[in-house]
Amino acid sequence: MKLILSTSNIMSGGLSVIRRPTFEKSNTELTSSLHANFASHQSIIPPSTPANGASTPKPSYRSWTVQQDGALWIPTHTSSPLTEPRESYDITLKLFYLPNIPADRRCVQTREAIQLVLKELGASSIDLLIVSFPGMSFDADDDDSDLDDPPSAPDSEHDHDLHGTEGAPEDIDTIITTWRTLEKLHAEGLVSKLGIAEFGVSRLEKFLPQIDVKPSVNQINVRDCCVVPKPLILYAKQQNIELLTHNDCTNVLPRGTLREILGSGEKGVGILAGENDSSGDELRGDVEPQWVVKYTAVVKDRGVVESKGYFAVAELRD
């Protein structure tokens, strides 16, 4: 069964995410806003017994999720369309392809992700789609340094995530294949601009000659953006690619994290059955995160983020 997790608009709520600001790249924004959205949906259900000091059991997930067309929406989702005319906004999507998911699913996944967001925002196209390939991260310290070395330093883009076992860096052929899908979306007018994340100079040099629609944006994660290597800045300028900053981690939703969120443990919401649970209607099986999309809609001439949120999709297999 497919599981569709959503955060709703995380700008409007009391977000625990900014309570603990972190300048390290992290996925706490996703996980804590999922927690917050689940919690607020659970709390809408009135407790069945008056509180008398005893801990009330968690409400059954059936009461705050909905099953529809073979997918379980966690929580039950109502879209919140943008309030101003479409042209007032810049809509950016960042799609995280996750490790160990066959690349041939990406065509379908990309369309699915875009459709979910378009429906959420009540829009018919997006301005910028940034894709993040699994296992890649950018390290300014290792990449072509900002010393005056020739840009022949070894390609050192590699995964620094703690979950390094979840996949090696994506090879360039798979990236190109995926890109063909994105080029189609671009041709259809569904997406105005395309973007990539964590590409260093050497990867860009391999990538650009093989594609038709060039990325307009390369998003890089640098703790101190003042140390972006000069060769990359020059190369990007030359290629007309805008270098943007971000603070996401590449493996934004590891399998273990998802299990914990959905599980029956202390931090979970009781959708997946625990190992020793024998009763109840909790779901059983292996949960496999497929992709995550982050969307933001910014009112252009006011710089106000009106909507921001995540959808995460996973497969539950027996």
Binding site: S12, G13, N37, S40, H41, S80, T83, V299
Partner: peptide, 16 residues
């Protein structure tokens, strides 16, 4: 606490 209580039923954040 500078945040407003989380309210999932609310659409948008009132900028519209």
């Amino acid at each position: 606490d500078p945040f407003s209580p989380h309210s999932s039923s609310r659409g948008g954040n009132g900028t519209g």
